[in-house]
């Protein structure tokens, strides 16, 4: 098939042509280095140990939710309900800490996994585009969170010990960052070293062919969204533990942040390319920007605008237009 008649972007193509040899992750790494330099120059406090720990702390949480989101995106979909899932999980955690102690953690995680599974089920079974499914389900999860508790729930003091799983330190390293590492390794292994992970890549790369090659599309999609729910659940649990509280809007900002992390890291929105490693870099970029802008004194909403622009630029550069003849 030749490219007659399919839109041509001369200027962008030239730039891309020059950089074409590089994998998408290099752009993200480049951006990371660039921003670190900018902020280090702009503020004396950026490169302090304390600040690095702060970045690590917030990065761990964003990493968890972004790890889940990337699986949804790798199949060519998107999960707009990660915010709702995080919030719901945070509320469930806080509510069950008193009666269940440690077991509140597995329970909350199970709730998030179930939520993700529901998303996958509706998307696959009823053939509803994922952005509608998750736009709708986000509302549902938030409602459930409100039903559990309208007011923010605080962690009972008796549970502080349990919450140390996240908040404490082990061998001098903050648990939350250890958890971040473990979560990264877990999702990385799932993507690269399990059949499901491979099938998700196949599905995103060429759905028709993967069906012809025997991949169970229904099953793989559902698992991808379940993993997304799992990631959001982990993030929700970590954040709630950090804050010692849970409330229905806790996760809302992470919808944008997780998608931006994935996209900036170089994972394609059509799926089949990029993945966990790319998203790690994307998460670092986001966390650095977030932290750096705060330090320099740029207000939160300017950051939002900046991220919006970054997302547009990242997708404009990395989107593989040759795959689709029609861009909707």
């Amino acid at each position: 098939m030749h490219k007659d008649g399919i839109g041509k972007q001369p200027a962008i193509k030239q730039i891309r042509g020059k950089l074409a040899g590089l994998p998408a992750i290099s752009y993200a790494l480049g951006m990371l280095v660039l921003f670190i330099v900018i902020f280090a120059v702009g503020s004396a406090t950026f490169l302090t140990r304390y600040n690095m720990l702060t970045i690590g702390n917030s990065a761990a949480i964003l990493l968890a939710v972004a790890m889940g989101q990337v699986f949804a995106i790798l199949t060519g979909g998107i999960d707009l309900s990660v915010g709702g899932i995080m919030s719901l999980v945070s509320v469930v955690l806080m509510k069950t800490l008193e009666p269940l102690g440690f077991w509140a953690y597995p329970l909350s995680l199970a709730v998030g996994i179930a939520a993700g599974f529901l998303n996958g089920l509706i998307n696959s079974r009823f053939r509803i585009p994922s952005f509608i499914t998750t736009l709708g389900s986000n509302g549902i999860f938030m409602s459930i969170a409100y039903m559990i508790s309208i007011k923010p729930l605080s962690a009972p003091s008796s549970s502080f010990g349990v919450l140390d799983i996240v908040n404490g330190t082990t061998l001098g390293i903050r648990n939350i960052m250890l958890l971040g590492v473990i979560i990264f390794v877990l999702f990385f292994v799932i993507q690269r070293y399990t059949i499901t992970g491979r099938n998700i890549m196949l599905l995103g790369s060429n759905e028709k062919m993967s069906w012809l090659s025997g991949v169970d599309i229904f099953k793989v999609r559902t698992i991808a969204f379940t993993l997304s729910g799992f990631g959001a659940a982990l993030a929700g649990v970590m954040l709630a533990s950090n804050l010692y509280s849970g409330y229905p809007t806790l996760g809302t900002v992470y919808i944008l942040n997780s998608i931006a992390s994935v996209v900036i890291g170089g994972t394609a929105m059509t799926g089949g390319a990029g993945g966990v490693l790319n998203t790690l870099v994307g998460v670092m970029v986001m966390s650095v920007i977030n932290n750096g802008m705060n330090i320099i004194g740029i207000d939160v909403y300017a950051q939002q605008s900046f991220l919006g622009v970054l997302v547009i630029i990242a997708v404009a550069i990395s989107f593989d237009r040759s795959k689709l003849s029609v861009i909707k």
Binding site: Y301, Q304, S305, G308, V311, I312, V315
Partner: peptide, 9 residues
């Protein structure tokens, strides 16, 4: 989606 975030900011 990106435009929305940008403009809101």
């Amino acid at each position: 989606l990106g435009m929305s975030w940008t403009l809101f900011g």
